[in-house]
């Protein structure tokens, strides 16, 4: 009975698949690429629990248990990289409301033409590459010839070496992000605001609502679902300060506050070829991010109707 049912199911599935074989052909390239370059490395992550040697390969290398995780937890770099990563992430998270405020203000502009031009210009920095952005920072913040050097010079003071300082690193990192991405990040909020029914504003005006009251009671509630979705996604990256920018902004002078997990993983793994150790640090990082994402999504589901899935 069960067996015939199973064959029936297989038969049924096969019929449905073969009827749409063209669709599977369309999926094939993406699936193959993901299998080879994303899922295969997910299997490769076992080297974090092995003493990997390139000669023996992944499956032949001997098991090492949690040796490399312990090595990381006991290394003197552990508190430093974690502290730097979390500090920069939290600092950056604190700037999360800026694009929201930006969108609310743009939404207040009545001059449509000006509004359009203003928005267009505000997206522009988003398209500058990370390399050029860091190059720009080095030029503008150079204590001898940069803008900041000139400003201090006006008052006859000696400018600090901002790019080579441990205290300034996180501020430069976060605020240059704000400079580059606020306009772009606000698009999604501006789009959400554009769906507000104009009659709501008219009714509010009739009732004598002030401009601020309209923002407070119409605009902001409108944005809440979008804000929550984006916040959840942001939480999933709490332990993930992007490699590209941090690595470029690093130098010998600021390294004690600029070494984050992603750059450390790169140096341990590719510059000093400790494959297993690097993979262990990386896996630790990924697991924490993944757990955070699930936790935040769960809490959001529980306390509001908003969640990712």
């Amino acid at each position: 009975m069960n067996a015939s049912r199973a064959t029936f199911n297989v038969h049924y599935a096969w019929r449905r698949i073969s009827r749409n074989w063209g669709l599977y052909l369309l999926l094939l390239p993406a699936v193959v690429l993901l299998l080879c370059f994303t899922y295969k490395p997910m299997y490769g992550v076992v080297i974090a629990f092995k003493d990997f040697s390139p000669v023996k390969g992944i499956s032949e290398s001997p098991w090492a248990g949690f040796k490399y995780f312990e090595k990381f937890f006991h290394s003197y770099q552990f508190p430093i990289t974690i502290k730097n990563t979390v500090a920069i992430s939290l600092y950056s998270l604190a700037t999360f409301p800026i694009p929201i405020a930006f969108a609310l203000l743009v939404n207040q502009m009545r001059q449509n033409r000006f509004k359009r031009v203003f928005q267009t210009i505000s997206y522009m920095p988003h398209f500058i590459s990370t390399v050029v952005l860091v190059g720009l920072l080095l030029i503008l913040l150079s204590p001898s010839s940069g803008l900041i050097g000139q400003l201090y010079g006006l008052f006859g003071a000696e400018a600090p070496n901002v790019m080579g300082s441990t205290t300034w690193f996180s501020s430069v990192f976060v605020w240059s992000d704000v400079w580059q991405h606020t306009g772009w990040d606000s698009i999604i909020y501006i789009a959400a605001l554009s769906t507000v029914n104009p009659s709501l504003y008219e009714a509010a005006t009739m009732d004598g609502a002030s401009r601020w009251q309209k923002i407070r009671y119409i605009d902001i509630p409108m944005l809440i679902p979008t804000v929550i979705t984006l916040l959840i996604l942001r939480m999933g990256g709490l332990l993930g300060v992007g490699f590209e920018k941090a690595y470029l902004m690093q130098n010998n002078l600021n390294i004690s506050s600029s070494e984050v997990i992603s750059t450390y993983v790169y140096k341990i793994g590719l510059l000093s070829s400790q494959y297993s150790f690097s993979a262990a640090i990386n896996l630790f990082n990924t697991m924490i991010n993944f757990a955070l994402l699930i936790l935040v999504n769960y809490m959001s589901k529980k306390f509001s109707e908003n969640s990712l899935w």
Partner: peptide
């Protein structure tokens, strides 16, 4: 009407939140 659509979508979306990391990818 794509059979297995949910599973296939999950196969894609999972990679947004989890990956093998730098070294395993490098080895691949």
């Amino acid at each position: 009407d794509l059979f297995g659509r949910k599973t296939l979508s999950l196969f894609f979306i999972f990679t947004m939140f989890f990956n093998g990391g730098l070294i395993p990818t490098f080895l691949a």
